[in-house]
Design a protein around this nucleic acid. Sequence first.
DNA 1: TGTCCACTGGAACGTACGGCTT
DNA 2: AAGCCGTACGTTCCAGTGGACA
Length: 416
Amino acid sequence: MHNRRSDALDEVFEHFLHGSNIFREREVLTHDYIPEKFPHRESEIRYLGEIVAPALRGSLHSNVLIYGKTGTGKTAVMQFVLSSLTHKAKELGSPMKVCFLNCRLSGTEYRIFSSLCNAISVRVPFTGLALAEVFDRFREGLESTKMALVVVLDEVDAIVKSRGDFLLYELTRINENLGQSKISIVGISNDLRFKEFLDPRVLSALSEEEVIFNPYNADQLRDILMDRARLAFQEGILSEGAVKLCAALVAAEHGDARRALDLLRVAGELAEREGAQSVLEEHVRRAEKRIEHDRVGEVLKSLPTHSKVVLLSVCILNRANVRHSITGDIYNVYCELCEESDIAPLTQRRVSGLINELDVIGLLNTRVVSLGRYGRTKKIHLGIPKTFIRNILCQDERFAPLFEYVPRCLTAYPTE
DNA sequence: TGTCCACTGGAACGTACGGCTT
DNA sequence: AAGCCGTACGTTCCAGTGGACA
């Protein structure tokens, strides 16, 4: 047993050490790689360059809003433009600085302001200060630097949707109180309806210029993939069919180039692992399944305990041939499962909220229905296979026995 | 036509926590 | 040490609702 295992591993390690015969440079296909060329984005690059150029003289440039769905190259293009800008600014000794922030990753207005402070070397604590205090320190710090600051807020819609537009309102007004320094804002949004969430004053200040990144079509995706593939793969390894399929599969969805690159990378990894001589269409098809499987698995594992119990409750009702369970039934089963495993149950209101969250991430599908005299509720069914949920949740020993549990409330349940 | 069910979903509030300022 | 702040997660309260049923 031991020998067999070490032989197998030995082969894996040897294979690794002798270098990949598929990849030349795998990193080229990862998300954080910024390429030198952006096929089909030349005009956007030029336009953005024209907009931010005044920063080179230390003066204000127009605020910009960039729209586009995920994987249309907004972030990468902007980073590319900014790195060229800072490079040029260094050459010229221009009094400017760039601060690139991802609002979704930062999470809160406080953290965004504190990142802005860090960008201009003002130290603020992780927490503890009033938001207004952090903002004041930022403004004072900025004023003393006497420079133009370009603030790029990536995924700005995330912060506006969850916290309102206080942050943008303050930032767009800050120039009124600055004498020596200036700040220009570039907002990047995935959501085209993002404007609806903004105060009209903020909107007009922010969208002096607008740039829209349209999704890539299959031909454009193919060009992008070919470009990267030349760097990423060994010569002659990648079949043209595989590239075409990647482009076609992704274009049929939302034209997300990031996803296309993922697909190509995973296809390459699959081919590599089985020692294939080339990356074929079949590898791409398997990669597509693998990516989806992994994504859902990760989401499931990272779910909070109560959400897992809710999901489990839906599984149990599903097992009892209740195809569309309703909130009340799920809550009953949920309470029993909590009792069974010594977890303090949450209120129905909270559970109803958890069900909504599970709906948003696609693990459940819900629909509000009215059953007339029998009230208004939600019909809920699983968004992914029961066996898959079982496989993942059973890795937690608390949940494994619960899958076999037969709830008391079910015995009285009228089957559909 | 009015009643009434079983919720939905918004809003306000409570509690715990980490970490700052004074 | 006390007071405050933002954040996360939860509870409590309650008006609103679509449609079957009497």
